[in-house]
């Protein structure tokens, strides 16, 4: 199966002008399953003051542009994250905090925590650390803003174009019908 890459899907033309407004007003929905939820209140309130960049927390996925995954995801919460992501309206972006969504982190051998989030939904930016400090989070946001301005943050387009691949990955963990351990390692 051919996977569309970032270069092919880059925003051009009129979108470039709108991208200026999009990067200046990122409204985020934070999915607080993991320990990263603790780092967000200081980032939002007066100490680090995220509102300087026009960012703010939103209550529902319909209103939000940015989905923050703050830490590890178990299988059950992965299902909810996919629902939430699909409810958000285009253009939308995903930031994964901490090392757990990258390679499993300290939960690398857990039977219920997923190892790599980017297999199931497109992640535009991962911020490493266990957990990243508010400074690192803000630096990540600024990096995402630059990507949006250059038209490179096109995770939502990737999801549309490569939907079959993502759906196959999602089903392989969420809808399996046979015991896992009889099979081979990936």
């Amino acid at each position: 199966m051919e996977l569309y890459s970032t270069k092919k899907l880059k925003d051009e033309g009129f979108e470039q002008i709108l991208n200026f407004f999009r990067k200046k007003s990122l409204w985020m929905l934070h999915y607080c399953t993991g320990c990263g939820a603790v780092e967000l209140p200081p980032t939002m309130t007066s100490r680090w003051d995220m509102e300087r960049f026009g960012m703010g927390p939103m209550a529902t996925p319909r209103q939000a542009d940015l989905l923050l995954i703050t830490g590890y995801l178990s299988l059950k919460s992965l299902k909810r994250v996919i629902y939430t992501y699909e409810q958000m309206q285009n253009p939308k972006w995903v930031i994964a905090l901490g090392s757990c969504p990258i390679n499993g982190g300290i939960y690398y051998d857990s039977y219920s925590v997923i190892n790599r989030l980017a297999l199931y939904i497109p992640v535009d930016l991962s911020i490493e650390g266990c957990m990243p400090r508010p400074e690192a989070i803000i630096e990540g946001f600024i990096k995402l803003m630059k990507q949006i301005e250059n038209g490179e943050a096109v995770g939502y387009k990737k999801y549309q174009e490569n939907y079959k691949w993502y759906k196959q990955n999602q089903d392989s963990v969420l809808k399996r019908e046979f015991p896992v351990l009889s099979g081979e390692e990936k």
Binding site: T45, R52, F53, D65
Partner: peptide, 28 residues
């Protein structure tokens, strides 16, 4: 409000940016 909370918030034209962004989004 931001100054009451001793922080700075965005520029005074932030609401205009928000509105333009909202109209540029897909909606259901």
């Amino acid at each position: 409000i931001a100054r009451i909370r001793r922080c700075y918030a965005g520029p005074f034209y932030q609401s205009f940016i928000d509105v333009i962004k909202l109209f540029s989004k897909h909606s259901i």
